[in-house]
Design a protein around this nucleic acid. Structure first.
Lengths: 359, 359
DNA sequence: CTTGCAGGATAAACCGATTTATCCTTCGAT
DNA sequence: ATCGAAGGATAAATCGGTTTATCCTGCAAG
């Protein structure tokens, strides 16, 4: 605003002059190298305060091979899951003395690859990638080609190049199968919307394997698609409309949060009662699921654990402690039983929302 | 992985050598300076491709006063609103040839101030700040003290130091008043949870002013608090329980998304019917509001417009085109009328969820 | 035939840190 | 008294670009 606001930032040399030492000494003091006489260190600290000196992270990283930056690429920033994940990651990275650069691939694999290259331009010490599709995508390939240190997260299974971290989708889905089969359901719809990612496939497999193990005669229908929202919506409606009475599944397992929302809205549009006419279990929990009526039984993912594990793995690689084969980390999920399936352990159904008169 | 993977990155000098020109010339070509003979430019371009050369953004920005980076600080990354906002902003920044550095203040004003200082360390060309509280917070002050170029977004009103961009909370809230008063409600609860930010206050004012203008006798109760979630929850319950029959408000206007969820869950816990016993309008729309039953009437914020306006304003300042007084930008919201209040224009209520028998 | 100037190219300085190679003390051991 | 080693400090090189000041080469004007 003011014309004379060309604020002259203090440099390390200004500090050196003020403290009566060399720039090299200042640098040492600031990075905690111990071979400095304590009286010199004190003078430096005083000068830093006097001049309001702050290290320029850009210049600081220029010389070394890698910079104290961690890159993170996620498929989107609009879902609470990734939002929470990156918030945690940012916090952990800072705690370890790293800056974090964040970018959204917006569910585009092309953009993902580009962003990985861009992270390499920044000479990040390491990179966290949540692939759009799976560990076999071009983002991970690029990561490998560029010789970057990285951890693959969430939409992945084991990989021979990088450590991976994910929710234990397989077991969690299996426990959903336990629940539904245990409740007597023998015809179940599995629904997956949006990206048919590795995670979604794993959930599918986990459910199917357990369900068939428990009862080989169970009928499992699939409705998976990458199509636009409206197309998927229509597909669900047609599916449900075509199957009346005994031909209709008695339960739905939706494999993602988007999917849960979509299925729920179609069930309602058709006037089916939950859970009397049809039960619903969703993978991935959200605040609203506990508040909507009936509340939705869902699998909650261990976001904090995933974040913590990811950062631990990455730092171990970056700081060179860990050099062995890549490891696959699976974090256990928890199944939150509510009203839409299973015996709810929350308060009893709200009478008035349900029926204003009496039968 | 491989021992010899010390990937020798090509520098601008390598390119210069390969093209048989000087580094200065390469730099010119790459930044589109026109005083270069076209045959030289061609050779440079070819060398760039051959060597897979990429500009190091860090070294590149070192000399100049400001770097091609835009900083953004938001209160959280877990809410879809900010998620969408930063996604848009990132996209726009890239389009203009800037990198974007993103950070979450996690609703802490102290952290916000710290992050602003950190953005300054990076010598960002400009900074976008969504303050935790308002334009009077310490983040904005720090921004000003450091002489940074910035735009304040969302939880702000007019400011004499920076351009501001926000949803037109005042008018939108007024239109909610139009709706509720028009529907005959004369006793309304205004509920605000989480951060009582500038935005929330403005919504409150907008509603009250219009409501009282339409009917001076209207009764408006307030329940605003920064308290922990459970305390707020109890407050709502006690409030509703204490007021039976005629003493109970016939409508609630919740001033934020969190607030809507909280109020909704308490209304349900008490077994009140929506909208028969009590109407509900929320500020800030979410996917689930259109799917839950009954669907929730809500004010939708113009995220894209806000993002576009923000980036336009910031770039104008950064690129020195705009030097006048700070301007306040207000983007209009839209009111989505659903089942929880007003005459829904969506499909009729679902019979079966409502009542399984007949009266 | 000189002078002047414009168009282009470039060597060298610069940005602000880190790191290296060197140098100076001081102190203990021989 | 001499030498070596250790402890500290620093000048200078370095990182990879951008910018500046200089320089060269023609060509048109005087």
């Amino acid at each position: 605003m003011r014309p004379d606001e060309r604020i002259r930032r203090a440099t390390i040399h200004d500090v050196a002059r003020a403290a009566g030492v060399s720039a090299a000494t200042v640098s040492k003091v600031l990075r905690g190298v111990t071979t400095v006489r304590s009286d010199n260190a004190d003078r430096v600290h005083r000068a830093v305060v006097d001049l309001d000196y702050r290290i320029d992270p850009v210049a600081s990283g220029l010389r070394g091979e890698q910079r104290r930056i961690i890159g993170a690429v996620v498929p989107d920033l609009e879902s609470p899951f990734f939002g929470k994940l990156v918030t945690e990651l940012e916090s952990l990275a800072e705690g370890a003395g790293y800056h974090m650069i964040l970018a959204s691939s917006r569910e585009s694999e092309e953009r993902e690859t580009d962003l990985v290259a861009r992270m390499n331009d920044w000479r990040v010490a390491g990179c966290i990638l949540v692939p759009v599709r799976s560990e076999r995508g071009s983002g991970a390939t690029r990561l490998n080609d560029l010789g970057m240190k990285a951890v693959l997260v969430d939409r992945v299974s084991a990989d021979e190049r990088f450590d991976t971290v994910a929710a234990d989708n397989f077991s969690a889905a299996a426990s959903v199968a336990d629940l539904l089969i245990g409740e007597g359901h023998r015809h179940i719809l599995l629904h997956g919307a949006t990206q048919i990612s590795k995670a979604v496939r794993t959930r599918l497999d986990g459910f199917e394997e357990r369900a068939r193990a428990l009862d080989p005669t169970v009928t499992l229908d699939h409705l998976l698609s990458d199509e636009p929202l409206q197309t998927q919506r229509d597909a669900v409606r047609v599916y449900l409309e075509e199957r009346q009475g005994d031909h209709r599944p008695t339960a739905v397992f939706s494999l993602s949060q988007h999917s849960t929302l979509l299925v729920l809205s179609e069930i309602r549009r058709l006037g089916l009662r939950i859970p009397e006419d049809i039960s619903l279990v969703g993978f991935d929990d959200a605040d609203w699921m506990q508040t909507t009526w009936p509340s939705i039984t869902a699998v909650a993912q261990p976001v904090e654990a995933i974040a913590a594990c990811t950062m631990r793995a990455l730092l171990a690689r970056v700081e060179g402690e860990s050099t062995g084969f890549p490891v696959q980390n699976l974090e256990p999920c928890s199944l939150l039983i509510r009203q839409s399936a299973g015996q709810s352990n929350e308060e009893p159904p709200h009478q008035s929302q349900r029926s204003s008169g009496s039968p």
